[in-house]
Design a protein around this nucleic acid. Structure first.
Lengths: 242, 242
DNA sequence: CGGACAGTTGATCCCGTTCAAGAAACGTGG
DNA sequence: CCACGTTTCTTGAACGGGATCAACTGTCCG
């Protein structure tokens, strides 16, 4: 299961073995349970084996902003391995199965197997690219475009993770969570979703979403998947010569 | 000059030497000149020796969102070393002096000196933390709080970089750029700045900003500097035992 | 001195919020 | 299997923060 991760980088057998040998404890996490809390000193990183999780922060006024969503195969909390205190919360979106890896084991791996470290670093960089796009999304797009963009991002990421096909997927978020991810109110999220459906840009049944005309939705969202760096997600051209 | 960076991590002499030996070319960059363009295949990383730069993206509708600001000592474009295509623009805010380092040199350094790599990785993680806070800022704070928060972030970062003292600094951004960083319009930024000044929360003369009562501004901004991970910016507790 | 750019101020408008209430869907326990 | 409380979704009406448009002022610089 941790091996999913190996695909991303051209590692030698030693690297592979070191990854397999990482001490870890697989654990089930209930929906809405905290995986990490802001302000906490954290001593473990973790890999999502199954299910979804999200990162969020809460302002002093009590407003919540979701700053990122993670899916199976994502390595989260690398922050914990290299920084001292968590600056945001990570919470399970659905029931998850998560592999916890002790902080020191990650640090040791990075130092002894720099190629593995670099492969993980790529993850961090892609996460950063997604955060940047979210700043743009929330800062400069209107509600309609904003939600369309988020839906576009999800299909592409889910497809890359093998969890969506033919532009159909289950979005494991309530409209309230969607609102917290887009900086809108649940009421307005609902109106926009209804409008998008009315125009035939999306189809919805419960939390299932289908995009009948990808090009059309892509256009209204102004979506360009460059920032997802999908070429790096499956197989990485490499740190070797290339 | 590159040595500024060394302070951050407990490196051994070999690591230091490797950093000093990094091939680089120091170059002056005019204000508003592009250091990196979205979509470009980029073959070099760079360190800001002097001056300010900012990262931004432009939506299809032509709206610009600034997603980050960098100051002397910041290592930017590490993305270039590990990813293939730039997903955003980096542009000089002021006249800058920048050290360009070839992509391959950075890659080689990371693999041969993992401790140095980890120290740079910390930079990437802190950048990520700042992006997350910007998502919150733009997504869930009103204009007043949003601008106050940005001003708070800048003092603390500038102080950490030795560029501000006693809560006074020169903010090298026009109000239009401030607007693009906060997802507002220049007009509204102006009104909010005037209001903050009228209330005595800030003092302004041209682009110089002074914060007479830090606690007061901090409170209206709901600012907590946890996410800046300032403990990591000066001296890093370390990858060794600790 | 003049032209460009940055900052300032006013009037009006609109997108998204807020408040409120009803309708589905969901998960419980009997 | 149904009755139930709870959560999520849906819809309407009124409000408001920030946008937009437009004009004016100041400042830098050639």
């Amino acid at each position: 299961m941790i091996r999913k991760f190996e695909r991303r980088a051209p590692l030698d057998e030693g690297d592979r073995q070191a990854l397999r040998d990482l001490p870890h404890r697989i654990q089930a996490v209930e929906p809405a349970a905290y995986i990490l809390r802001e302000g906490e000193r954290c001593d473990r990183s973790c890999l999502i084996v199954e299910g979804f999780a999200y990162r969020h922060k809460v302002t002093v006024e009590g407003a919540r902003q979701i700053v990122g969503v993670h899916m199976p195969g994502d390595l989260i909390d690398l922050e914990c391995a290299l920084l001292t205190v968590a600056d945001h919360n990570v919470q399970a979106l659905t029931r998850c199965s998560v592999a916890f890896i002790p902080r020191e084991a990650v640090r040791a791996l990075i130092l002894s197997h720099p190629r593995v470290g670099a492969a993980m670093w790529v993850d961090t960089l892609i996460d950063g690219a997604i955060f940047r796009e979210w700043v743009v999304n929330v800062g400069r797009r209107d509600a309609r475009t904003r939600i369309a963009h988020l839906l576009c991002e999800f299909v592409r990421r889910l497809e890359a993770a093998g969890l969506a096909r033919e532009y159909r997927y289950e979005l494991p978020m309530t409209q309230e969570q969607l609102a917290d991810a887009t900086g809108l109110t649940p009421v307005h999220v609902n109106r926009v979703l209804m409008a998008l459906a009315r125009e035939g840009l999306i189809e919805r049944h419960r939390r299932f979403v289908a995009i009948p005309d990808w090009e059309a939705l892509r256009r209204v969202a102004g979506f360009s998947e460059l920032y997802l760096h999908l070429d790096q997600v499956r197989a990485e051209p490499g740190l070797n010569p290339g």
